[in-house]
Computed example of a mutant assay.
Amino acid sequence: MEMTANYTSFVAVGDSFTEGMSDLLPDGSYRGWADLLAARLAARAPGFRYANLAVRGKLIGQIAAEQAVPAAAMRADLVTLVGGLNDALRPGCDMGRVRFHLEEAVATLAPSCRRLVLMHSPGRQGPFLDRFRPRMEELFTHVDEVAERYGALVVDLYGSGALGDPRLWDADRLHLTAEGHRRAAGAVGQALGLDARDDWRTPLPVAVPARWTARRTEDLRFARRHLGPWVGRRLTGRSSGDGLPPKRPELLPYEPPPSGHGGLS
């Protein structure tokens, strides 16, 4: 499979991971791996255009219905699709429906672009996600099978021990930090043929273990601020993205953010 990083347009499709949570900028917006990747691709292609249709909390059926069709109509060189994890984390998830909607989205997107990229989303090490890992891994098996049928590229972020390091995850334990997003952007860029500026798989330095009391305090804070509201939304069928528009709904010329906010270092 020939790889080239010379793309003139890029559309990102998905959920909170692709929207950029929790890579928070001073103005309150999110950056994230897709914006970082767009910055590097734009540096290689004058007139480069970028759209990001991702919205936090979206299920794969919503991504297929609300994002795949408009993304395909943009006829971009490069399209990335990451979805299904929000489904896998919900009680009573029907993995058959996940598989159906995943293929529905891929079948819509693959003929419309030069390169379609799918991913195994990263997963944080720790007990919070352990109960969901069998379902997550079933999802990633579906991703591999669909990618093979439609000639899509798969980037495996889940298999990286480095990206599972809790220090690369925000306090909600569901979204990467700025450094985590930087590494995810590096992984996708390298898969597309960009020069490696560093190895995104490099483990962080060994950390001094926190005291037991500090860990329990952090666990209680997490449960109160993040886990409780998250469980509440799952039980009531609500989403953190209800009513929110895509961050970059149109395929427009890429403009770098204010100094110090963009680029893939």
Results as ranks from 00 to 15, higher is better:
236 T>S: 10
222 F>S: 02
181 H>W: 07
142 H>T: 15
117 V>W: 03
180 G>K: 06
118 L>P: 00
117 V>P: 00
96 G>H: 07
11 V>D: 00
10 F>V: 12
34 A>S: 02
206 V>K: 15
134 P>L: 13
37 L>I: 01
115 R>G: 06
88 A>S: 14
171 A>H: 08
144 D>L: 05
256 P>L: 11
129 L>C: 08
254 Y>H: 06
15 D>G: 01
122 P>I: 05
143 V>P: 06
199 D>C: 08
184 A>Q: 07
152 A>N: 05
17 F>M: 06
230 W>N: 13
31 R>A: 01
137 E>I: 14
197 R>L: 12
183 R>E: 01
196 A>V: 12
47 G>Q: 09
117 V>K: 00
259 S>T: 12
71 A>I: 00
226 H>L: 00
265 S>R: 13
137 E>C: 14
237 G>K: 11
33 W>L: 04
20 G>Y: 09
142 H>N: 15
98 V>I: 10
165 D>Y: 08
184 A>F: 14
67 Q>H: 14
124 R>T: 01
174 L>Y: 06
90 R>V: 05
31 R>Y: 04
190 Q>T: 14
41 L>M: 00
31 R>V: 02
84 G>N: 08
39 A>I: 03
189 G>T: 04
60 I>A: 07
12 A>T: 10
99 R>S: 13
105 A>R: 01
145 E>P: 11
15 D>F: 00
167 R>N: 09
12 A>E: 05
97 R>A: 13
139 L>T: 12
243 G>T: 11
28 G>P: 01
256 P>Q: 09
178 A>F: 08
3 M>S: 15
5 A>P: 14
117 V>M: 02
48 F>I: 05
34 A>L: 02
121 S>W: 15
172 D>N: 08
250 E>P: 13
2 E>P: 11
239 S>I: 07
212 W>T: 13
223 A>E: 08
29 S>D: 15
250 E>K: 12
179 E>I: 11
41 L>F: 03
106 V>P: 01
138 E>R: 05
11 V>F: 00
136 M>V: 13
27 D>M: 07
242 D>S: 04
245 P>H: 06
98 V>A: 02
62 Q>S: 09
238 R>S: 14
63 I>K: 04
42 A>Y: 11
194 L>W: 09
31 R>I: 04
92 G>F: 07
62 Q>P: 04
174 L>C: 09
169 W>H: 01
24 L>R: 08
40 R>T: 05
64 A>G: 06
156 D>T: 07
23 D>M: 10
202 T>I: 09
93 C>E: 07
32 G>D: 09
256 P>Y: 12
80 T>L: 09
201 R>D: 10
19 E>C: 08
80 T>F: 07
261 H>E: 15
34 A>K: 08
180 G>H: 05
79 V>G: 03
159 G>T: 10
88 A>L: 01
231 V>A: 10
47 G>E: 03
201 R>P: 09
40 R>V: 08
44 R>E: 03
71 A>K: 10
242 D>F: 00
